[in-house]
């Protein structure tokens, strides 16, 4: 147990070191890819809270991404709010949206919940398209260009995204061991029984969704500032929503590090596909999704555990036993 903890500690330290030094030496192109990986890790991790731990498949969670992006853009563009303030507000607005919507929508379950979240996303996008005076409608919206060098701006974006990822992951880590996390897992396993066990299911579910929405909104806000131009077709697109779901599945839903691993693998593969098959990018992506579902349904983390880690451990133990036996027989 203690050994495990130490190993995890070392891994986290190494990862942290790599993630903080890499952006200073990487070229602009690779920095962009790395930032993208971190962003999708945030999105998948946020989704993990409501879908992985609580078992509510929020396929339409991308609505908070779009909402965060537009809130940031509107606050910066129309009111002239500074970026950090606009970003925080964007997160809070997304969280509030989830709280208000969550009370009715989280009463639905399974397929109905999926469809409700998708419906909310569509309705919100259409609404954004129609509020021209605020959002620029179908033309999209630009954000103020930052008054610093491009390189330092991208590094700033990178670190903002990284801080969000770290705080989101820490939250998931602590929640997963807290009574609240316990309640979420009970809800995932059996909601009716959870209610009878004295768990306030409505409150817990809504809390989980609000947290999920808050971080998704933050990622959307950073994304908007990063690209300095957003349009509703992009930030509310279902394909982003499905992407971070695939990432969650690929890495392993309901685990702390699964979404990070998934985001890394997925974005690398995605990047490769873009390079190799520019014309069939979508198609190959679709193929990849099908393959993930058929071949890695429990996520890479569990695949690693069951196919590599446990057998390896078994092998070591077997070797150990043989070793001690050999030792004994020598003595004997």
């Amino acid at each position: 147990m203690r050994n495990n903890l130490a190993a995890v500690g070392i891994w986290v330290a190494v990862l942290f070191l790599v993630l903080t030094t890499l952006p200073l030496i990487l070229s602009g192109y690779w920095l962009k890819i790395l930032t993208n990986i971190i962003m999708f890790a945030v999105l998948a991790q946020s989704c993990n809270i409501i879908s992985g731990y609580t078992g509510y498949p929020a396929l339409g969670n991308v609505v908070f991404f779009g909402l965060g992006a537009y809130s940031t853009a509107i606050l910066m563009n129309r009111i002239g709010a500074p970026f950090p303030l606009a970003l925080l507000a964007a997160g809070l607005i997304s969280g509030l949206y989830a709280a208000v919507l969550g009370l009715p929508i989280l009463k639905t379950k399974g397929h109905y919940f999926v469809m409700a979240t998708l419906g909310v996303n569509e309705a919100t996008r259409e609404l954004v398209n129609n509020l021209d005076f605020l959002t620029g409608g179908g033309i999209g919206m630009s954000l103020p260009i930052p008054d610093r060098s491009i390189q330092s701006f991208y590094i700033l974006i990178y670190f903002t995204m990284l801080v969000i990822l770290v705080s989101c992951t820490l939250l998931v880590h602590f929640v997963s061991r807290s009574p609240f996390g316990f309640a979420l897992r009970a809800i995932r396993a059996n909601e009716q029984a959870a209610g009878v066990m004295g768990i306030n299911t409505t409150l817990c579910k809504t809390g989980a969704w609000v947290a999920s929405a808050f971080f998704t909104g933050l990622a959307g806000g950073v994304y908007a500032y990063w690209l300095t131009y957003i349009e509703s077709q992009v930030v509310f697109s279902i394909i982003i929503g499905v992407k971070f779901f695939v990432i969650l599945l690929l890495g392993g839903a309901g685990t702390v590090f699964g979404p990070l691993l998934g985001a890394f693998m997925f974005q690398i593969i995605d990047q490769f596909i873009w390079g190799a098959f520019p014309e069939f990018h979508l198609g190959v992506l679709g193929l990849l999704m099908i393959m993930v579902v058929i071949f890695v349904p429990n996520g890479l983390l569990r695949l690693f555990e069951t196919r590599i880690w446990f057998p390896a451990k078994g092998l070591f133990q077997a070797l150990g036993v043989m070793g001690t036996r050999a030792g004994r027989s020598e003595k004997g």
Binding site: S51, V114, I239, L249, L282, G283, L285, M289, V293, P297
Partner: peptide, 25 residues
């Protein structure tokens, strides 16, 4: 049919995969 027994996440992702393959086509 290969994944009929898995959860609703899986099948939705799968059918979305088919969707974007056809769009690409």
């Amino acid at each position: 049919n290969r994944v009929m027994k898995t959860g609703i996440f899986m099948i939705m992702i799968l059918t979305y995969g088919i969707e974007i393959i056809l769009v690409n086509l």
